[in-house]
C-alpha cells in the first residue's frame, strides 16, 4: 500500500497544546469537533488547507508537552494520513501508534511545504516526488509494530486482553 498526499511543513517542538488547545480538548470527546481546531494556535488556516490523506511534516520533538491523546486523535480525524518528523516526544509517539496514526521518524530537512509525498508504511519509505528524493524511516520496537498492525491498542487489547 502506498499513500499519496501533500506535505504540510512545521518546525521543531510542535507541542500538543498547539496540536489541540486545552480550551477545546477538555470540553468534549467528539473528535470531529476537535479536528476542526487542529493546529489552530500556530496555523489558523491549517484545517481549511488540509485535504484528507495529506501529511504533517515536522522537525524534532513533535508532540512534546501534555499527554493528551486528543492530539493524535484530532490529527487523525482531520484526515491527516500520517506525521513524518525528525523525532517525536515519547508520550505522543505511543499515543499516535496506539490510535493507529502512522508516525514515521526520518530526516525531514529536505521536504518543503506543499511537496507531493508517496509513503509506503510497511517498508517505512517516504518519497518526495516534488524533489525526487527517497527517505528511509527509523524502525520502531516490535511491540509497537504489532500494535500498529492491529490498527491500534484498542483492537490489540480486544484480541489479546493483555500484552503478549
Amino acid at each position: 500500500m502506498v499513500l499519496r498526499g501533500k506535505a504540510h511543513k512545521f518546525g521543531d517542538d510542535i507541542n500538543t497544546d498547539y496540536i489541540i488547545s486545552g480550551r477545546y480538548k477538555f470540553k468534549t470527546l467528539d473528535m470531529d469537533e476537535l479536528a476542526r481546531h487542529v493546529m489552530e494556535d500556530i496555523d489558523p488556516e491549517f484545517h481549511s488547507r488540509l485535504k484528507p490523506g495529506d501529511f504533517v511534516v515536522a522537525g524534532k520533538n513533535f508532540g512534546c508537552g501534555s499527554s493528551r491523546e486528543q492530539a493524535p486523535l484530532a490529527l487523525k480525524h482531520a484526515g491527516v494520513a500520517g506525521v513524518i518528523a525528525k523525532s517525536f516526544a515519547r508520550i505522543y509517539f505511543r499515543n499516535s501508534i496506539n490510535n493507529g496514526l502512522l508516525s514515521l521518524i526520518c530526516d525531514t530537512e529536505e521536504i518543503q511545504d506543499g511537496d507531493l509525498l508517496e509513503v509506503n508504511p510497511t517498508l517505512g519509505i517516504v518519497r518526495d516526488i516534488t524533489r525526487g528524493i527517497e527517505l528511509k524511516s527509523k524502525e520502531i520496537p516490535p511491540i509497537m509494530m504489532e500494535i500498529l498492525n492491529e490498527g491500534g491498542l484498542i483492537p490489540y487489547m480486544r484480541k489479546n486482553m493483555s500484552f503478549k
Binding site: S67, E69, I91, N95, N98, N99, L153, I154, M157
Partner: peptide, 20 residues
C-alpha cells in the same frame, strides 16, 4: 511517568503495560 488514555485503559484492563 506519563502515558496517554489508551495506554492507561490497557493498564486498567490487564494490570500491565509495556515499557522501554
Amino acid at each position: 511517568t506519563g502515558v496517554g488514555s489508551t495506554d492507561l485503559a490497557a493498564a486498567m484492563l490487564s494490570g500491565q503495560l509495556w515499557f522501554l
